[in-house]
Design a binder for these strands. Structure first.
Length: 797
DNA sequence: AGCACGCCGACT
DNA sequence: GTCGGCGTGCTC
């Protein structure tokens, strides 16, 4: 079927352009398909766009323009992804173009340039080599004079759409003679030309395997100069071929056999495999205690999917995409694996993505955005640590990878596994209702007992040293473990040295001038730093308000605990891991590798150390303050605390040696902490559900958060009230509308935030109303009002 | 979004 | 007169 017209979503993110624009397909571009990336004329500019449909009829009254270019040989988006973008646009209040762009590697975003070229004979000092490139930062005067030149026909403006995606090329060598002819050539080579002889022998022994890539020849010890020489003599011909930047190169040639499953794992797998074979969509919630071997079940399910000729997609949280984990999957599935995560360079991401798109990779492992991997024929989707909040993107498009996974699972008639030791209440409740199929793993795979967890009541404990951070009990336990050459993980969910500066005379707290937050003291850099906007100033030595010397730095961070440990345990080596020590690329891996080699006794860090780490020599986990997240004004504060404590406890005693966990808290009777102690997820689930029911919170209600931001506090509040009135007008019982209230951090980067929370059970009209609010938001942006809509937000603070 | 058109006040 | 400020409307 030949189509005449392409329907295109153009790369202009705005309300008024958030629909298809139609273009004629010129005969030379008849390779265009649904999902093609194209360049089109748009007004007097040129923009990139994506073809979402091909048709033969149009309702458009004006004259259609023609497509200018089809950018890629193979359409980057599959028809499935094009369809998915429409579903998401309807549900997450984002422009379709923003969704299409997030589905692709960053290098496939167009680079737009505007170039003014002088006509021949025009000599104007503005131009260099007859060209002036507009960057958008020029003086008004310059723009005016350029415009008048263009008007007078003395210059032309050109709009360029550049493709940033570059393929890596590698030199490759082709044969030009027959084997016999090469054999004859051997005689022409002088006896002392060792390099040439090596090469000719190589050619003869590897005959038939050519063309060969430079990298392979180099591995065989053949020098570039010799190859050049042969090409010069006409004995070989070189050409450039496309190659992949391979992030997994270092893992090549390792293959590990699957591990046998215990009866629980096998029973779970059987249910999953059945759905893989029958090609039926079903969501499984795999609830398994830490160390129960969920990963092994995933790997078997992936094998099964490959066995029936289908592909597999697996998501893991960014933080647990450690080399350890990637290695494991790669060792099992070898070259069929593609990985997608933030540690890859843009080029590597692009190449891994292309291997997937071309069907060369059958197993994809990646972080959140890998849920858009252009895999076809998916047989299984897995989301590990499904409770992780990082699966929801925090800025637009605010998609949740879990929702996308459910959509894709239905599209492909493939099962979806959501795995966790501490499932999100949402998922667990759905399993209760029968919407998900619950599978449980209660035993640890290596038959190790769960670690023994003890709570230390900070209100009646003795402290080691002069500070009130480390109890004697914890420090003694650390000493014991270190004396036995074992290692310790310590969690403190706060970075910096001290949380805030307080003046004892006037009560002044040093705050960020741009945000509604106190500044954190970072002693190593001598600065008070805002953790939200990065503002910093020197640490004061007297109160900035009353000039009293009686100032105190209160609240403990990882830096302070680090120095206390150095004081109390001068012989112990401590590695600190938080945002401050892992900012540089690769430093994360460096710290973990060093700890793995036992170059340190204690790993002290924020929540980034709580998840997925597997160090067999760690037998003690200490939580320095379990209360940091407990009283945040958010409905899921208990859930997050329980999750964190359970996850971090799971780091202890993963091998033969029994683990021990010590949790320091001021709230030893809080249910989240008590149940984390007994590591009883089911009991926590039951308790928390009652509280959610009483408070009308998820999973009993759906939520949507609408926030309004403005430089002017009154304007933000006023707009929020207008929106509330609009909602009240159209929504009914039992929908609850809370607010507007200032957000928990009412000012960030000099913008004031007001928010409204809509809690609803069934509100079919809500989507339409929110779309109206979003449409109106475009207009209000002009007056400095930003309106954000977040469906099922992670946080409602 | 970004670009042009068009209408109105200010200034050489 | 015309320069240039911003409001308005369109892009297949």
């Amino acid at each position: 079927m030949i189509f005449l017209i392409a329907q295109v979503i153009v790369d202009v993110a705005s309300q008024q352009t958030d629909h298809v624009f139609e273009y004629l397909i010129p005969p030379e571009l008849d390779d265009v398909t649904i999902g093609s990336r194209v360049v089109v004329p748009f007004g007097r500019r040129k923009v990139q766009g994506f073809v979402v449909n091909l048709v033969n009829q149009t309702n458009y009254q004006g004259k259609l323009k023609k497509l200018l270019l089809v950018v890629d040989e193979q359409a980057p988006l599959t028809p499935e992804l094009v369809e998915l973008s429409q579903y998401l646009a309807d549900n997450i209040f984002a422009y379709r173009i923003s969704i299409l762009k997030t589905m692709l590697p960053r290098v496939m975003r167009a680079n737009y340039r505007k170039i003014v070229t002088a006509s021949s004979g025009v000599d104007n000092p503005l131009f260099t080599n007859g060209i002036f490139e507009l960057t958008g930062k020029e003086d008004l005067k310059i723009i005016i004079s350029l415009k008048s030149l263009i008007k007078a026909g003395k210059a032309k403006i050109e709009y360029l759409v550049e493709n940033q995606a570059k393929e890596k090329l590698e030199k490759c060598y082709n044969l030009v003679f027959t084997k016999e002819q090469y054999q004859d050539l051997t005689k022409e080579i002088r006896k002392n030309a060792k390099q040439q002889q090596i090469l000719i022998n190589f050619i003869l022994t590897n005959f038939g395997k050519f063309p060969l890539r430079q990298s392979i020849l180099a591995q065989a010890g053949i020098k570039t100069e010799t190859l050049k020489n042969f090409c010069h003599k006409g004995w070989l011909r070189s050409k450039l071929v496309e190659t992949y930047r391979n992030p997994l190169r270092e893992y090549e040639n390792q293959k590990i056999k699957p591990v046998n499953l215990n009866d629980e794992q096998a029973a779970a797998l059987k249910q999953i495999n059945q759905k893989i074979e029958q090609q039926e969509a079903e969501t499984f919630l795999l609830e398994g205690v830490t160390g129960s071997g969920k990963t092994e079940v995933y790997l078997h399910a992936i094998s099964q999917s490959l066995k029936v000729g289908r592909n597999a997609l697996m998501l893991v949280p960014e933080i647990s995409l450690t080399p350890q984990m990637v290695k494991q999957v790669h060792a099992r599935f070898g070259k069929e694996v593609a990985v997608l995560h933030s540690a890859l360079s843009e080029g590597e991401k692009y190449d891994e993505w292309r291997r997937i798109r071309r069907g060369e990779a059958k197993v994809v492992v990646g972080a959140r955005s890998a849920i858009f991997a252009p895999l076809t024929n998916i047989g299984i989707i897995i989301i590990d640590e499904e409770h992780e909040s990082s699966y929801k993107q925090e800025d637009t498009p605010r998609y949740h990878a879990r929702d996308v996974a459910i959509w894709r699972s239905k599209y492909h008639h493939a099962p979806l596994i959501l795995g966790s030791a501490t499932p999100s209440l949402d998922s667990r409740a759905r399993a209760q209702k029968g919407r998900y199929h619950l599978l449980t793993l209660k035993k640890r795979a290596n038959k190790q007992a769960l670690p023994e967890v003890k709570i230390i009541d900070l209100r009646k404990s003795e402290f080691a040293g002069s500070q009130f951070d480390l109890t004697s009990e914890l420090v003694d336990a650390i000493k014991t473990r270190i004396s036995q050459q074992q290692q310790v993980i310590l969690l403190l969910n706060r970075r910096g040295y001290a949380n805030f500066m307080l003046c004892r005379d006037c009560g002044f707290v040093l705050e960020c001038p741009n945000c509604d937050l106190s500044l954190t003291m970072h002693r190593d850099v001598g600065q008070m730093i805002c953790h939200y906007c990065g503002y910093h100033e020197a640490i004061p030595n007297k109160c900035p308000n009353c000039h009293s010397k009686a100032i105190r730095f209160l609240g403990t961070g990882t830096q302070k605990v680090e120095s206390e440990l150095n004081e109390l345990l001068p012989l112990a080596k401590v590695l600190r891991m938080d945002v401050d020590t892992t900012r540089r690329k690769g430093s994360y891996k460096k710290i973990l590798d060093a700890f793995g080699r036992h170059e340190a006794d204690i790993l002290l860090g924020t929540q980034m150390i709580a998840k997925g780490l597997d160090f067999p020599n760690v037998t003690l986990v200490g939580v320095i303050n379990a209360d940091t997240g407990l009283y945040l004004p958010d409905y899921n504060a208990s859930e997050k605390t329980f999750e964190l404590l359970t996850q971090v406890s799971g780091r202890a005693g993963r091998a033969e040696k029994k683990g021990q966990v010590l949790i320091q808290t001021f709230n030893p009777d809080h249910y989240a902490i008590k149940l984390a102690q007994s590591q009883d997820y089911e009991a926590f689930y039951q308790t928390e559900m009652k509280i959610r029911y009483q408070g009308n919170y998820p999973p009993f209600f759906f939520t949507t958060l609408i926030s309004v931001a403005s430089k002017n506090e009154q304007n933000a509040a006023k707009e929020a009230f207008i929106i509330k009135r609009q909602l009240m007008h159209q929504l009914h019982q039992p929908t609850i509308i809370l607010g507007p209230t200032p957000s928990a951090i009412s000012k960030i980067k000099n913008l004031y935030y007001y928010q409204i929370l809509v809690k609803y059970k069934h509100e079919p009209k809500l989507k339409a109303i929110l779309h109206q609010i979003q449409d109106a938001a475009q207009e209000k942006k002009k007056y400095g009002l930003n309106i954000y809509i977040d469906n099922q937000p992670n946080r409602i603070m």
